[in-house]
Computed example of a mutant assay.
Amino acid sequence: MNQPSVPLLGPVKIRELAAKLNIRPTKTLGQNFVHDAGTVRRIVRDAGVEAGDHVVEVGPGLGSLTLAILETGAIVSAIEIDPPLAQALPSTVAEVQPESAARIAVTNRDAMEVASVAYLALPPVLEATEDFVPKHLVANLPYNVAVPILLTLLQTLPTLETVTVMVQLEVADRLAAEPGSKTYGVPSVKAHWYADVWRGAKISRNVFWPVPNVDSALVHMRRHPEPVGVPRSDVFDVVDAAFAQRRKTLRQALSTWAGSAARAEEILRDAGVDPSLRGEKLTIDDFISIAQSFTKVS
């Protein structure tokens, strides 16, 4: 398939826009702007975005990835925390890709504050016809808040079917880690509550301006039905307790959560989990069983 000949943002245009808006990228907001058309098109292609799909984007910045999403014919509701960037994005799209202007809307807020789809801006193309029902989350996420943003939006936007995000390589490895690996931990387990998770392509630091000190990678998620019969909060409490002291056995690590080491062992044995194991060996299903057994043993 031939790549669309729709204009995107290159290095020169990125710097021009930043200068025009008096934007100086800050580490506080994790601002590293992608300037490589091949990279943003790859992200969108790997995400499986098609014409008419409703897509949430977090941290669109100057609009590089936004334009790549829009060129597929998708409809985008973006969340941008930086007021000047949020205000400028629709104008950038109208200038660079005018045929897509009616398919983009931006809300100026922290993604961690998005409590439901009602917090998202409605693109003009939908205003007279239908609601925005997000199918994909596609984003270049700030390194320091990538995990909490992902977990928040998976919880508050239940119609999301897929997630494709670019994050710091280390974060990508943690999210996609499997039980038994050194990188397996709280983010890995909680992500697996919502979805099947796997790591995608590694992304060079050189496609960003300014160039960060680390490489990035894509993380892909495909939502599966959430477990039933036990509240998510109960399971996440077990996960947090198990990894708060990850070098200790589960019998010891869960002693405070359970009330005592002896009761922790009783709960673990009822759940079919060896008390001498550490949390890094357990799957999400194991943690669910422990949470269920807590209620039974009580």
Rank of each mutant, 00 (worst) to 15 (best):
P98R: 05
A18R: 09
V56G: 06
R251G: 13
E280I: 01
G10I: 09
D173P: 02
D110C: 09
Q168M: 06
R205E: 05
T129Y: 09
A37F: 12
L157F: 10
P4K: 03
V58N: 09
A264V: 13
M1K: 11
K248S: 08
L277E: 09
S77K: 02
E71I: 03
L67Q: 05
E71M: 05
T28D: 11
P98A: 09
T283L: 05
A19C: 11
P179K: 04
A264E: 07
R223M: 08
E266L: 15
V189P: 10
A88Y: 05
L17R: 01
V238A: 03
G259A: 13
D53I: 09
K248G: 10
Q252T: 15
S77N: 07
V49S: 05
R103A: 15
T183N: 12
V207E: 01
G200M: 05
S298T: 13
A176N: 03
K202L: 12
V214P: 04
L169E: 14
S255C: 11
A51W: 12
L62P: 01
P83Y: 06
L175R: 00
V49P: 06
G59L: 07
W209Y: 15
H224I: 13
S204E: 10
E226S: 10
A177H: 03
I149W: 01
S64W: 03
F294G: 00
V58C: 10
Q3L: 14
T183M: 11
A101E: 10
T72M: 05
V171M: 05
K182V: 12
R232Q: 15
D285R: 12
L150R: 02
N213F: 08
P90V: 06
T162Y: 03
A111T: 07
A271K: 00
H224N: 07
V114Y: 02
R109T: 15
V76Y: 03
T28R: 15
E113W: 05
I69V: 15
T26D: 13
S260G: 13
E50W: 11
F33C: 07
L250P: 06
G200L: 06
V114H: 01
T152I: 09
Q245P: 07
V145S: 08
L268F: 08
A172I: 04
S216T: 04
S260K: 11
D173E: 13
D173K: 14
A115P: 04
L21E: 04
I81K: 14
R251E: 12
